[in-house]
């Protein structure tokens, strides 16, 4: 589907804005909402560009900056923190060689912090592209990321 088709796959009512943005972003190879896309969404819903931009920047799942192929969102909420989250965050930074908010040089991973992912029973946890990984430790973390790397064509 082209971006226009994706946008038009939902009714042009304002309450569909978030859903449309989700779909558009999911289809964007760099995992973000670029300016032409946001403009087209705004035109379709007859909303001011500033409004749509304001919405897109409010929610942490949306990005208006290009991201890597995989978005690694590591939970930074207290329960995960308590279960060793800080170590996990440090290990991730070190292993990927980037700070939070940044993308690895090979364009594979963008590292982000997240609030509770709703999987605190297996804290510390992280989410990669919608998939949950829990009971993390340094070893498992490397395994998971290595596997993601290997899966790349």
């Amino acid at each position: 589907m082209t971006t226009s088709q994706i946008i038009r796959s939902l009714e042009p009512t304002q309450d569909n804005l978030l859903a449309i943005l989700h779909r558009v972003q999911d289809a964007n190879p760099a995992n973000f909402l670029d300016q032409p896309e946001l403009r087209e969404v705004a035109d379709y819903l007859e909303l001011p560009y500033s409004f749509v931009y304001g919405v897109a920047t409010f929610y942490s799942m949306f990005s208006v900056k290009p991201r890597g192929r995989h978005v690694v969102r590591v939970c930074a909420s207290p329960p995960c923190h308590l279960m060793g989250g800080r170590t996990i965050r440090d290990e991730l930074r070190e292993y990927l060689g980037v700070e939070f908010g940044d993308t690895t040089e090979d364009g594979l991973f963008t590292l982000e912090l997240s609030s509770c992912l709703g999987t605190c029973g297996i804290a510390p946890a992280m989410m990669i592209d919608g998939e949950i990984f829990g009971n993390l430790d340094g070893v498992r973390l490397r395994e998971i990321l290595d596997r993601k790397r290997r899966e790349e064509p």
């Binding site: 009512t13 304002q14 309450d15 569909n16 804005l17 978030l18 859903a19 943005l21 989700h22 819903l45 409004f51 304001g54 919405v55 409010f58 929610y59 942490s60 799942m61 949306f62 997240s114 609030s115 509770c116």
Partner: peptide
């Protein structure tokens, strides 16, 4: 309706704003 990552949208009036397609 799906949210997009904002804890505040659990607050009922922010939820309603978000559901209407606005900032939460």
């Amino acid at each position: 309706k799906e949210g997009a990552g904002a804890y505040i949208c659990g607050e009922e009036t922010a939820l309603i704003e978000s559901l209407e397609g606005k900032r939460g």
